[in-house]
Design a protein around this nucleic acid. Sequence first.
RNA 1: GGGCGGUUAGCUCAAUUGGCAGAGCGCCAGCUUUACACGCUGGAUGUUACAGGUUCAAGUCCUGUACCGCCCACCA
Length: 901
Amino acid sequence: MIELEKDYDPRKVEDKWLARWLENRAYHSDAGSGGKPYTIVIPPPNVTGILHMGHALNNTIQDILVRRRRMQGFNTVWLPGTDHAGIATQNVVERSLATEKKTRNDLGREAFIGRVWEWKEQYGGTIINQLKKLGASCDWERERFTMDPGLSDAVTEAFVHLYGKGLIYRGSRIINWCPRCQTALSDEESEHRDSAGKLYHIRYPVKGGATGEYVVVATTRPETMLGDTAVAVSPDDPRYKDLVGKTLILPILNREIQVVADSFVDPAFGTGAVKVTPAHDPNDFEMASRHGLKHINILTPDAKMNAEAGPYAGLDRFACRKQLVADLEAAGLLEKIADHNHAVGHCYRCNTVVEPRLSPQWFVKMKPLAAPAIEAVKQEKIVFVPDRWTKVYLDWMENIRDWCISRQIWWGHRIPVFYCSACNHEWAAKGAPSRCPKCGDAGIRQDEDVLDTWFSSWLWPFSTFGWPEKSKDLSFYYPTDDLVTASEIIFFWVARMIMAGYEFMGDLPFRRVYIHGTVRDDKGRKMSKSLGNSIDPLAIINEFSADALRFSLTMLTATGQDVYVSNEKFTLGRNFGTKLWNAARYLQMQTKDSPAMVSAGIPSAEGLAVLLRDGIALSPDDQHILYLLRDAIAACDDNLDKCRFNDAAHVLYEFVWHQFCDWYVEYSKSVLYEAQQDRREHVLRVMHFVFSNVLRLLHPFMPFMTEELWLAMGYGVEGGTISAAPWPTLPDNATLAGYGVNKATVAYVDDKYDLIRVGRALRSDYTIQPSRKIAYIVKPVSPQCADALRADMESVLQLLRAEKVDIVPEFQPAKAMPSGVNKLGTIFMPLDGLIDVQAETARLTRQREKVEAELAKVDAKLANQAFMSKAPKDVVAQLQQRRSEVLEQVGKYDRQIQALV
RNA sequence: GGGCGGUUAGCUCAAUUGGCAGAGCGCCAGCUUUACACGCUGGAUGUUACAGGUUCAAGUCCUGUACCGCCCACCA
């Protein structure tokens, strides 16, 4: 044993263990080196990221899963890494360039990418180090980065494969364009946000019509009219029947445009006439292809008006909107401006309003990839926890649209497509070809675009294990077991990984997806930098400890529900840690003279048998705590199996604090302080046995403190680790009985504790100083109870803090005496004339009223014939049992009140 | 517009399959009880959002309403 300091110093202990774990390669796994595999791949945080509460929760959950499996003997690997986060990282580096008054164009592509790598080398390890501080038991030797050579190779392989199958194509489509990042975004990367906009009603004069003959169109983006090539109306709209086919004059530009009929148009919305801007609206684009309309792009990449915008060329889109509206108004062509709330797309990286824009981009055909991924989930080969996400996933998958994978940025995997300038041949290839495979010309160039970051992430579960090589790791660790992530990322990542798994590996990427809630502030708002309401997990680690952070988060997060946190909430985990620490200290102090007793805490095949070495029978309290320990292990396992992490933590919290500390340790004091040596040692054994189990059960939740205590208590050896200790299992009921744990005794102890509570309440009601030892009298309900209590008197005295407790079966108090009723009997507190008759009458009357109310309730139920005939027997029996108890108590109170007057 | 989640003690949340509504924090009273005041003992606190329904029995199942939140969506 290593003596524990009075105060736990988490900074010292956590730093120490962190260093040792890394040094000892404590969490390294080798393929095939014993044990069935258990695999988790981390959702790779952005390399630009810093640890926030969402990460803390996400990784704590993964660590709980992984640490438990490791202790259960699985060959466990938790693979860490980071994501190159194309746009986000490029933005970060561009910002730092901006401080030097430079742009990426000043550097050129190659030099800029060099800068990004420099940045990555310098700051990219931040979040990994923060994960280590959290206690994440990743196999750090396996850390991967989505841009490292192996993964880049996987990306090219995947691209070439899909290209070869015709599942990747290039086409001009309306895509979401971020004018600030100057790149296309996928549909998922454009976040729709409700905003209070305007609906502008604009008059388009009819060519050759009378003065004042207009078609009025409604639009939220008036500046796009500069790109209009038609106006569409519903074919069934009587108002416009005669207009179809006619020509309108586009105001300002005086472009002649046709009126076309298209069933897309909803006659009930706006004016029933829609301006058609094929180059800046996906629906209009569709309409244009149906009617053979021209596309006129009016925007530059940074969302300024281009030459097509005539007088507005050069203006920013919003400035143009303002000017155009003013000009229309001056020309009498603005009918009205109505308020209109609608959702506007924003760039998920920089929050700029995205602009739908016609642009040549690369796409992946998703429908064929989706089919097996839908099947897998429908057949429950892959399950979502909580189950409701299954529907969200399936809805999205069944309506999946092609994925825009090209980005006009520099940081990322360059699209491996090459063009021959001699023969215009286009092909995809791995490596760096030097000649056109078709004509042999050396004049070739590679596509300028890079791939969407998620194009590398979707390969993560197998690219990290060496794919496309058929590595030993890959065959051993794949498919992975659990994926733990947040709901935001189901479409971005989870769904795509499932598709990639089937497409490239021919097998599912993971068996279970646990979706946890979002961490919010105490007002329910998402934590964000701009709101300034973030709680920094590292600040919590510094103020409390990593264990406290983890345990608190786990306790507070109901399965799949959002969690609201504030600084004070982390005292929960801190206080629990302190409790555990002090329990350990107490145990150590008591064990000083009997060091051998520690052996009961050392996991061994003997298990409980070690307790019985001296042939001493287990006391009722011993039996009780062992029984509850068994229950706690069972409940903890069950909850962890079901991803009910908060319930699992709660079971342990309750067991450790209230069962072990408040009752068992308190009981043990009488034995430890007063009993003879062999009984002392016996109790110490039970305590070490239980405590050792507790430490192991808690290890996944609070790895640092449990590791420290494991060594300090002497359950482990110097240089060892609790993660190598076996996960607790306890014998079933029958075996437990074989060790002398008797279920009836356990039930008796529950009743005994209840009796003690009644006795304590008496003392409290009469404000008797705790230091004053009371002599109680118990009138037992039966001779068996009397025997049990007599045999168990040491425990009763200790827990009741009583001087003595007389068991008097025939006790009839001669005078009024405070008392309380319990299953085992009535407990009296003789006070030697101190009783205040009035106060006591009031107290008893109050208590009687309570019991009587319950009696009335129970009686009403029992009188209900329908209930009696239809309710199951055990429910009725339970109620009848309760009735007799309550009835008896009412009678007791009556008699006591009687005695007072 | 479609979908999902939530509404339970002062606060934050639990409550597997319908079967005596719980915990933490806070609150009240008492405590230098020799591990722990980050503690111990005792205590108070509920029209389970609302309105109906099913059932012997509803926080739990069904129908509807209100409010809060999230996700998806091509009504310009």
